[in-house]
Simulated scan of single mutants.
Amino acid sequence: MQRRDRATNSPVTAPEAVVAAAEPVTVTVARDVRADQREAFEGWAAEVLDLAARFPGNLGTSLLRPGPGSTRYHLVYRFADGEALARWERSAERQLALQRVEHLTDRVDYAHVAGLDSFFTALTPARPGPRWRLTVLTVAAVFAITLAFQLLVAPHVSGWPLPARLLLSAVVVVVLLGYVVMPALSRLFRRWLHPSRD
């Protein structure tokens, strides 16, 4: 579920459907920064991302800097669910921070994504770290979940038809991967997955 809004100086909050989500939610805020304000903006971004990171329910933040010839920065926030996101978006801290950034930027775009899409959006931003690192982490997670399934669950369902066993295995792997294991690993290995580009 996604929404994109384009405005210059109007704070945007997640739509009701995203706020109601009982699953991880990612917000990407893209800002075109004025050429003479980049240093000031980076200072502001570091401050606001730190505020968001300390907010209850936050699962991680990152700042993606513009490439050559671009002025567009991306701030990425990930929250445990829509309610946690709503608390951040309605907070006095965020409102004050937004007031201080208006004169630094010319345009802002917001995107809200909930559910499994949120997880993959968070791990593959516009300027991700080396893709092989995400691949290694994903393979390790799938291996660990599959091994645990074979040791703990498979012996108890050995009499089931093969399609039923495969379906159960797929459901267990996908649910644990998307909602438990990879969110934890992505927080633990965040700096390794997305090394600093300073």
Rank of each mutant, 00 (worst) to 15 (best):
L116F: 12
W132D: 15
L137I: 07
R131T: 09
A164V: 03
V113A: 01
R127L: 11
G115K: 01
S169P: 10
R165Y: 13
A114W: 00
L166W: 09
F119E: 15
F143S: 11
P125S: 00
L116E: 15
G115M: 03
L116R: 15
P130T: 04
L152A: 14
L166V: 12
W160K: 00
T124G: 07
F143I: 11
S118F: 00
W132G: 11
L116D: 15
L116H: 14
T138D: 01
T146K: 05
V142R: 02
L168V: 04
A140P: 05
F149P: 12
L123Y: 06
T138W: 09
V157L: 06
V153K: 10
P161I: 04
P128W: 00
L134W: 12
V142I: 04
R131Y: 10
Q150G: 13
A141P: 03
A111F: 08
L147T: 08
L162E: 13
V171D: 09
I145W: 01
R165L: 04
F120T: 07
P155E: 01
P163W: 00
V136H: 13
P155T: 03
P161F: 05
H112S: 06
V171S: 07
F143T: 13
P161H: 07
L147M: 10
V153W: 10
V136T: 14
P163Q: 05
L116Q: 14
W132T: 14
L166A: 10
R165Q: 15
R165M: 05
A122Q: 00
R127W: 02
V171P: 02
S118D: 01
T124N: 10
R131A: 13
T121H: 12
L116Y: 13
L137Y: 13
L137A: 10
L147V: 07
V139L: 12
A144H: 07
A148E: 07
T135C: 04
S158Y: 09
R131W: 12
S158G: 11
L137N: 08
G115T: 02
D117C: 03
A114S: 09
T138R: 09
R131E: 06
P163I: 02
V171E: 09
A140T: 08
P163N: 03
L134S: 06
S158F: 08
H112W: 05
L116P: 14
V142S: 04
L168S: 11
P155S: 04
T146S: 10
I145F: 02
L137C: 08
R127V: 09
L134N: 07
T124K: 12
L167Y: 14
V113R: 03
V153F: 08
L123Q: 08
L134E: 07
F149R: 03
A170M: 02
V142K: 02
A148L: 08
P130K: 01
V153M: 05
L152R: 14
A148V: 04
L147A: 14
F119G: 11
L168H: 09
T121I: 12
F119Q: 15
P163H: 05
A164Y: 04
A126P: 12
L166G: 07
P130H: 01
P163F: 02
V157R: 05
P163K: 03
A164N: 00
L162Q: 14
L147E: 07
P161G: 04
S118Y: 00
R127S: 10
L166H: 08
G115H: 07
D117G: 09
T124Q: 12
T124E: 08
